[in-house]
Design a protein around this nucleic acid. Structure first.
Length: 648
DNA sequence: TAGGGGTCTATAT
DNA sequence: TAGACCCCTA
């Protein structure tokens, strides 16, 4: 969320910049910003569970652009959530939930484009998605580092140590962590907005001799930040006014004078606010980062530097006692939330040299921060040497990979394979996408079960697991009607002759299935297990709630004309307390699996399709435009919905 | 009237 | 996440 309005506030400390002016330097990149943008371009694919690496390619475009300007990128990723950000994360989760509900509602109303817009806001970036990018970067010898907690603090530290001379981000929080040269709004043309911390006094409107960075940071915290909401009526302007007025360095005393200095007599500054303010400030100063040169976690600024009481650092993270774990977390090998090992890459792994990249993959020639003899002095010298032509990465042969780790990696890889198979299954409701049978299908039972912790890392609200009610359109004609692009007759006959068991498998999943508070990425969900169809059938539960879209008689007629045997079944798959939940559908063969009482056939003229019960008679108005309904149908098919009689 | 707060929109291809 | 826009309040 950052500091509201900070970037415009910093106008006087900002200047336009182009990457061509930064040649020879190193930049730390807040990679989640790129990932979020990249995900935006393929959110629907992710939501549908289709395989895509568009977000990876999008980030690599930026990486290649930096390299083309002779800039060494260090991609920095967020790690664990801080307790201090629990509220922020909660709000984001709720926002995604809200978007999901809106998408459902808009689908119900047939407002397809708006629903898509909402869908894009529902997809979250998971660590596993980040790992895919990290793995691509490794092939290119581009440094990546996963921060123990916030990428912002990690980047500020890299900047402070002169390992990175610039920081690229969209998050204005970077200024509070002490970033010196921060580039916002970088576009693919190479232009951005450079904020220079040396000029922050200009933004605050005070003379340089009266300015201190602490004043700026305190002003931002006062105006409201991720770790502390602002007092009512206090924004950047008033916070700035106050910080310029007060000469008191002890904020426990100074903060009490806010009502007096700002002439806001009704404002109350209580002890709790002051305590939280001190904690927020300590969080920005002393958050844990990972030092790749020393290979250990440390605080961004030592407590001694500010004589900070450690009791204020309860939100600045905790030190991982296991240094090996901290190292692999920083490399990206561990899921930051579950600490489960997902990869086993090591900078000194000799095998890294063996795996030659594809021809189109270019490796950088920059020194790696993970290199044993890396230091900033050398970096400076190297930046001046323009004649360097060989790969500077130094690998020494180390027998790093133990059998135990290998076994663990293999187990996790099996899970990943299972996830991939799930993705293939998802393609079944993406009508017309040819399904490949995984060779591992028969060994699905060997996939280790997911840990409870993993289930907490669900991110994608549209992800499906085998317990979720599925969607399939068994009728080819209807299928073409609903999703013409994906059900062309030229498709393999496998699609049409797919055995019933295959369809049954597809039935096991639904986009808007029962979900937990935290949702997950379909790609990397670690909880997915493949089950036998019969097992899956047993998991189909009685609907608890449905959303339906009225089908106009005209449309119903057109469907009937296409095929009289249009079975439309709704399966509720949403939380019982979610009144706007979507419904998934089953073909008639699956209808029997449902409690009979939940299915009620209606005459074609009265059929409703989709997402929820109509609340007004207006919705069942026979004059509903056919075109609109068709749009609705297309949308529904996109998410695997299929017509069925109305449930009351 | 200045400024804070809430809502909505664009972001990619 | 930031910016535009609008509304509310002191």
């Amino acid at each position: 969320m950052g500091i509201t309005g900070l970037i415009p506030f910093l106008e006087k400390a900002s200047a336009k910049v182009h990457l061509k002016d930064l040649g020879g330097s190193t930049v730390a990149v807040d990679t989640y910003c790129w990932l979020h943008k990249g995900v935006f371009g393929c959110a629907e694919k992710l939501a549908r569970g289709e395989e895509t690496d568009i977000y990876v390619q999008y980030c690599l475009k930026y990486v290649q652009m930096l390299i083309s300007y002779d800039i060494k990128p260090i991609l920095v990723f967020d790690g664990q959530h801080l307790p201090a950000k629990a509220l922020t994360e909660q709000r984001r989760r709720e926002s995604r939930q809200q978007s999901k509900k809106r998408a459902a509602e808009l689908l119900r109303l047939g407002r397809v484009e708006e629903a898509r817009s909402q869908m894009r806001r529902c997809v979250d970036v998971t660590h596993e998605m980040a790992l895919r990018l990290i793995q691509e970067c490794r092939l290119r010898h581009v440094d990546c580092i996963v921060a123990p907690y916030e990428a912002d603090a990690q980047m500020a530290w890299l900047n402070k140590q002169n390992i990175a001379q610039y920081i690229i981000t969209e998050d204005s929080d970077l200024t509070l962590f002490g970033g010196q040269k921060i580039i916002f709004k970088l576009d693919l043309n190479g232009t951005g907005l450079l904020v220079d911390a040396q000029k922050l006094h200009l933004a605050m409107g005070c003379k340089e001799e009266r300015y201190h960075f602490d004043k700026f940071r305190r002003m931002c915290i006062m105006s409201g930040c991720d770790y502390l909401d602002s007092l009512p009526g206090i924004g950047l302007a008033k916070a700035c006014k106050f910080m310029l007025k007060t000469e008191q360095d002890d904020m426990r005393i100074a903060l009490r004078k806010i009502p007096q200095y700002l002439n806001m007599r009704n404002l109350e500054v209580d002890d709790e606010y002051i305590e939280n303010f001190m904690k927020a400030e300590a969080t920005f100063k002393h958050m844990y980062i990972y030092n790749p040169l020393e290979r250990r976690m440390e605080r961004l600024c030592a407590l001694e530097d500010y004589k900070t009481d450690e009791s204020y650092c309860s939100n600045a993270g905790t030190l991982l006692p296991d240094s090996e774990m901290a190292f692999h977390l920083a490399l990206g090998n561990l899921n930051p939330f579950t600490l489960k090992r997902l990869d086993n890459w090591h900078p000194e792994q000799v095998s890294a040299l063996k795996s030659a990249p594809a021809k189109h993959v270019k490796r950088t020639k920059h020194k790696s921060i993970w290199q044993a003899n890396y230091n900033t002095t050398e970096l400076k010298e190297d930046n001046e040497k323009t004649t360097q032509t060989t790969c500077a990465l130094y690998f020494k042969k180390v027998d790093f990979v133990g059998q135990t780790i290998n076994a663990e990696i293999e187990a996790n890889q099996r899970q990943e394979l299972a996830k991939h198979t799930e993705a293939e299954l998802h393609s079944m409701y993406s009508f017309g996408v040819k399904r490949k049978r995984s060779p591992s299908e028969s060994s699905c039972n060997s996939t280790p079960p997911a840990s409870p912790a993993q289930s907490k890392s669900r991110h994608n609200p549209f992800a499906k697991d085998l317990q979720r009610s599925p969607v399939v359109c068994k009728n080819g004609s209807l299928l073409r009607l609903l999703s013409p692009n994906k059900s062309s007759p030229s498709k393999s006959t496998e699609e049409r002759t797919r055995p019933e068991t295959t369809r049954v498998n597809a039935i096991k999943r639904s986009i808007f299935a029962k979900e937990q508070v935290e949702v997950r990425s379909r790609f990397f969900s670690t909880q997915t297990q493949r089950s036998e169809p019969k097992e899956m059938e047993s998991k189909i539960k009685e609907p608890e709630d449905t959303i339906e879209v009225i089908e106009s008689p005209a449309e119903g007629k057109s469907v009937v004309e296409t095929n009289n045997n249009v079975d439309i079944v709704l399966l509720s798959s949403c939380e019982s307390d979610d009144s706007s939940s979507l419904t998934a559908t089953l073909p008639s063969s699956q209808e029997a699996a449902l409690p009979i009482t939940t299915v009620e056939k209606l005459p074609p003229s009265a059929r409703r399709v989709g997402l929820s019960k109509p609340k007004t008679s207006k919705r069942s108005n026979p004059n509903t435009k056919t075109v609109k309904s068709d749009e609705s149908q297309t949308k529904l098919s996109m998410f695997g919905f299929q017509k069925r009689p109305v449930l009351k």
